[in-house]
Write a protein that binds this DNA or RNA. Structure first.
Lengths: 213, 213
DNA sequence: CATTGTGAACTCATTCACAGCG
DNA sequence: CGCTGTGAATGAGTTCACAATG
C-alpha cells in the first residue's frame, strides 16, 4: 500500500458529499466543474476541495477544473463504492422497517440481504425489501453464510450492545449504529454512530448560546 | 454574556453523551463518578472529560469526583434541556412517521406539536403522536402560531431545500435535516444534518483502507 | 492522597499564497 | 491566463503533566 499521509476523517466525509454533488452536476448536464463551484455547492472553501482531492492525486486540469464524470469515478474508487456491499439490518421496529421500505440503501448501491428481530411474531414475515425477517439468535451464523459486510443496528439502546456482540461473533466488522448509545467493540470492528438525540441537544445549545452559526 | 473562550463543537457533542451516561449511572444507583470512569464509559480520555467540563466551571470535587445528580443538572442547564422545545416534522413518509411513532423525541423531552406533508391524501389524518397532519403550504403561518422552535426535515432530498425555505419564512431558526442533501439557509438559522448515506460511505472507505480503526 | 482543573506542548485540520502548468 | 496542486502558516482541538485542593 502507498505511503498515505494521514487523511483527515473529515476529508472522507466531504468526499462523500462531493460525490453526491457531482452526480447532481452530471444530471444537470455539466461536464466540467471548478473547485470554486464545487466548494460553493458543498458549503466548504475552494482550498479545502483542492486539498481533499490532493490527498489522493491530481484529478483536475490546471486552468480548467475537474471533469464531472471522471472525478466522480475517482471518488467512487477511493470510497470503494464500486463494489456492492451487503447489509444486514437488526431491529425491525419503526426505524428499521422505515429504512427498509424507503429503499435508501438500495438507492445508494447498498444491498440489504438480511433482516433480524428478536420478536418471534415478526420472524418469517417478509419485509418490503424482499428479505424475510430472521430471529436474532441466527445472526452470527446467518451473516457469515450470507457474507454480510456491514451491520445496521436499529434496535432500542438497551439491545444495541448485545446485537453488536452478535455482529462481532459473526465476523461482521463494520457497524452502522442508529441506537442512541455507544457500543463497545474490538478494534477490528468499525463503528459509525447516527445519533439524532445528540444533534437535538446541539441545536438547543446553539439556539440558547447565540453562537454565530 | 460571559467571556466564553471558544467552545469546541465536539465538546457540545460529548456533553450530550456525558449527560446520557450520567442518567444511566444515576439509574444504576451511582452517586459519584470520576472523570476516569465517565471517560471510559463514553469512550474518550479522562483529560478530555475534565477539559470539556472545565469550559463551563468546576463541577467536581478534588480527590473525589463528580456528583452524578449535580453534574447531570449542570449539563442540562448548559445544553438548555430544562426548557421544553417544540418541534415540527415535515415529510410524513417512512422515516417521518417512524420518528413520530417511536416517541424518541418525547422520550428526550422534546415536544412534537406539528406534522406536515405535501400529499393531500395524508392531510388531516392524525399521526400516532396525536398531532394531525397539515399541508406544507400552511407551514410558515402554522409554525409561527404554534411557536415551533425547531424544524425536522424528513422529506426526500428533492424537497428539502423548499421545506427549509418555508421554515425560514416561518422564523424557525433551527433545523434538523435528515434528508441526504445540504440545505442553504441564512446565518440566523442553525442546521444539523443527519445523513446516514455519508456514514455508509465512510464505512466502506474505512473497510477497504484498513485504517487502524 | 486521589482526583480535579488548567496552562503548555503537541497533534490534527484548515486556510493562505503562490508556484506550476495546461 | 486561469485554475489546480501544495508547502508553509495559521488555527483548532486534544493530550500531557502537574500544581491545587477538598
Amino acid at each position: 500500500m502507498v505511503k498515505t499521509k494521514r487523511i483527515p476523517k473529515a476529508t472522507i466525509t466531504r468526499l462523500s458529499i462531493y460525490h453526491r454533488q457531482l452526480e447532481l452536476l452530471e444530471f444537470d448536464g455539466y461536464r466540467q466543474v471548478s473547485s470554486e463551484k464545487l466548494a460553493w455547492l458543498c458549503q466548504v472553501s475552494p482550498a479545502q476541495v483542492r486539498k481533499d482531492l490532493g490527498y489522493f492525486g491530481g484529478f483536475g486540469v490546471r486552468g480548467v477544473g475537474y471533469d464531472v464524470i471522471e472525478l466522480q469515478a475517482q471518488i467512487r474508487e477511493i470510497l470503494a463504492l464500486n463494489k456492492v456491499w451487503n447489509l444486514a439490518v437488526v431491529g425491525i421496529g419503526n426505524l428499521g422497517s422505515a429504512l427498509l421500505r424507503s429503499g435508501s440503501f438500495a438507492m445508494r448501491g447498498f444491498n440489504c440481504i438480511a433482516a433480524f428481530d428478536k420478536d418471534p411474531a415478526k420472524v418469517g414475515k417478509p419485509t418490503s425489501a424482499g428479505v424475510p425477517i430472521r430471529h436474532v439468535d441466527e445472526l452470527p451464523t446467518a451473516v457469515r453464510d450470507l457474507q454480510v459486510d456491514m451491520g445496521v443496528i436499529t434496535t432500542p439502546a438497551s439491545a444495541a450492545q448485545w446485537v453488536a456482540d452478535m455482529f462481532v461473533r459473526g465476523k461482521v466488522n463494520a457497524i452502522l449504529n442508529f441506537s442512541p448509545t455507544r457500543i463497545y467493540v474490538p478494534d477490528c470492528c468499525l463503528v459509525e454512530n447516527i445519533d439524532f438525540t445528540i444533534k437535538l441537544d446541539i441545536l438547543t445549545y446553539r439556539l440558547t448560546h447565540g453562537s454565530a452559526n
